[in-house]
Structures are given as C-alpha cells and as structure tokens.
Amino acid sequence: MRGNRILEVEDLTVSLEGKQIISNISLWVGANDHIVAIIGPNGSGKTTLLNVITGLAVPKHGSIRFMGKEISGLPPHVIRKAGVFYCRSENFLFENLSVYENLELAAYTAEARRKFKENLEYIYNLFPILKERKRQRSGSLSGGERKMLGIAKAIMSNTKLLLLDEPSAGLAPLIVKEIFKSIKKLACEKSLKILVVEQRAKDALMLSERAYLIENGKIICEGKSENLIYNEYVQKGFLVV
C-alpha cells in the first residue's frame, strides 16, 4: 500500500456500450484524509467512477486497490465485505421494506452487526424522525427523509470507506446544509473515510480537505480544497455552484 493509501485508483479507463466514459483516471484517498471530493458537471463520469470502484461496472483497464488489495473486477458483495459502502443517489432504498429493515440490511456484515445497537442509537439521535418512522415502509418517505435514511444506512454499515454519490441532489438548500453538516460530523466522530461525488462545487469544497475536478471522464485538476475554490473553472461557474 503506497504511502498509507486506503483507496488507490490508477490509470482507470471505462467504456460503456462503445463510448469511453472514463479515460486514464488516477486518484487516491489516504489514511490522513477525512473527506475527499470529486467535483464535476453532469455527464462527466462521476457516477460511473463510483460504479466501477464498487463492482457494478468493469473497467477496460486500470487498477483499483483498496487497503492494498486489488478489487477491480470483483463482484459488489465481495467489495462491500472488504469495507467499502456505496450510498447511491438513486434507487438506494428497499422501497417495500421498513425503515428499520433497511438499516438492518445496511449492517449486513459481521463487523457492522457487532456495532449495530451503538450505531442505531447514534442515528436515532442524529435523525429522530427515522426513529419515529422506523416501522414505516421506506417507499413512503419524503425526499429529505429518504436522504436521511441513505446517510443512516451508511453509518450503520460501519465501514472503512464510504462513497457518497451526490448527497445533495434534489434537496432544498437548507436541508443540504443539514446533510452536509451531518456528513462532516460523521467523518470526524467515526473513523471512516468519505469519498463524495458532487455537482455543487462550493459546498463540496467547503466540506472536504482535498478534491479532484473531473470533466468528460478526465481529472482536470486536483489539490487542497481551500485552494481549489480559487480555481478558474470553479470561479467561472462551469460547475453548478
């Protein structure tokens, strides 16, 4: 494992249905990072990137290493058990199962089950409304409540690396503030690393310590978030701010 890197993506290329979505991307999440952001506009390949890391898609070439072990090409359930949890932006709940059952399933792995009661307390404190609605069918929750459940699932997963795909999508600005606050709290209180993919550049940069800018499947810039705010791309607003 090079220099204590939890996640290392090297020279990754992904093609889907003939089109090259990702070209020669390299990025990493290190042991000293808490939150790393990947920022880019619609269609830049962000979601595909997360899909490949978690095993939902297969790369044409390149390597993905988690905790030093090669995970590219492995099936999703094996990657999950290795310690990577993927919180998608769409279709991330078991609609017909209750809130509580969703949380139970997020804690499917042995290590998550060990800390189940503890984590459950934690999220009920963080999102009291989930405790209220725990027996309710999760398909009937409102947009904001669903996102909360998504984050709650991520917490219950008790994982080492958390991948969040556009946690702010479709939410009102005030709720976005709340969600991001809880994400930041999460990274500090629980010792887990978070890789956030976002369109909202400014919010994402304020949340993270390091960030990558991505466009058309290529990394166009990387560095410390506090510096990237002054980056011309961000300033020119080619990204949704």
Partner: peptide, 10 residues
C-alpha cells in the same frame, strides 16, 4: 425489492 442494492449491502 432491489437487486443491486442487496449486493451493495454484501
């Protein structure tokens, strides 16, 4: 209910 999500849960 959700084939993909089930795999993502392990």
């Amino acid at each position: 209910d959700n084939r993909v999500e089930a795999q993502l849960c392990g």
